[in-house]
């Protein structure tokens, strides 16, 4: 009977081979430039972040695809981490809409979706017809009510279309919080001034996607330049799909569009 075991010699040879391979790989590892920290070189929005940025010749849009949102809350977690948002305040959040057969709508949003949605709602007696998640964030209105009401000119629309807050000028009067139809603003309990979603302006200007878009696993959040005809958002906006904005009747002209939003979404 032949023993199938390799000879000790073979074992030694393969062992040496492995060791050598390991050493070579190891030494390559040392030579290989460990170029971390070069965030600047990573470009996600083409044409932006490579120096010249014409603030007057930009237009960005954000599209939330409700049909793809699975309510994992990655975006909420990323947002909280990116800005160290204090507990209880949310720059972006994900709402759960449950629709019963009586057309009754049940909306909940435990902890802004930060912990995800682990369990279904147990308090609904009737049969459920439809469930969907709606991520909410700043709508970046072109006719922003928050900008109109600010008494000190601390909130404004930049030439490239972002509604931002000047933290040094803000007096924390909270007029804008009342004016915002989408409730995206809050007073930061630490700085005592108004804070809101900025679509990660600091990232966008460096050519990076907003943090929530970056982490979204299903591509439910899309961001891009409308000046770039190859961008996904441009193609969606130009395409035949149905896009809606929230509270169109308010005349705020948001730059945030929703794809697949039911009429119940407000």
């Amino acid at each position: 009977m032949k023993i199938n075991d390799p000879s000790p010699d073979m074992k030694k040879r393969s062992f040496l081979k492995n060791v050598l391979n390991g050493t070579i790989a190891g030494s390559l590892y040392l030579v290989y430039p460990m170029g971390a920290g070069s965030l600047e070189t990573l470009e996600q929005i083409p044409g932006i972040g490579d120096g010249a940025y014409d603030i007057h010749a930009q237009e960005f849009t954000f599209i939330v695809d409700i049909t793809r949102c699975i309510g994992c809350g990655s975006c909420c977690v990323a947002d909280k981490r990116e800005y160290n948002v204090p507990d209880g305040n949310y720059r972006t959040w994900v709402e759960r809409y449950v629709k019963g057969f009586s057309d009754q709508i049940y909306v909940d949003c435990p902890n802004g979706g930060l912990d995800g949605y682990q369990t279904p709602r147990s308090d609904i007696k009737e049969e459920i017809r439809d469930t969907f998640f709606v991520p909410k964030l700043c709508n970046m209105c072109k006719e922003a009510p928050c900008v109109q009401v600010c008494p000190v000119g601390a909130t404004f629309i930049t030439p490239d279309g972002f509604v931002l807050v000047d933290e040094k000028r803000c007096v924390g009067c909270a007029y804008c919080i009342q004016a915002c139809p989408y409730s995206v603003r809050f007073i930061n309990p630490v700085t005592r001034v108004v804070e809101k979603c900025t679509w990660c302006y600091h990232r966008v200007r460096k050519g990076l996607l907003p943090a929530c878009v970056e982490v979204c696993p299903t591509g439910a959040r899309k961001f891009g330049s409308l000046k770039d005809e190859t961008s996904e958002v441009y193609k969606i906006l130009k395409g035949p799909g149905v896009l809606t904005v929230l509270r169109k009747e308010m005349g705020t002209w948001p730059a945030l569009y929703y794809k697949g939003a039911r009429r119940e979404v407000v």
Binding site: L39, I55, A78, G153, E167, R169, Y201, H202, L208
Partner: peptide, 25 residues
């Protein structure tokens, strides 16, 4: 410079530290 607000506020908004990289990083 751009409207009835401090144009420097735009540059200040850019100073927020980037905390998330990309998968590439």
């Amino acid at each position: 410079v751009y409207g009835s607000y401090r144009a420097d506020a735009i540059n200040e908004a850019l100073e927020v530290p980037i905390r998330h990289g990309t998968n590439g990083s």
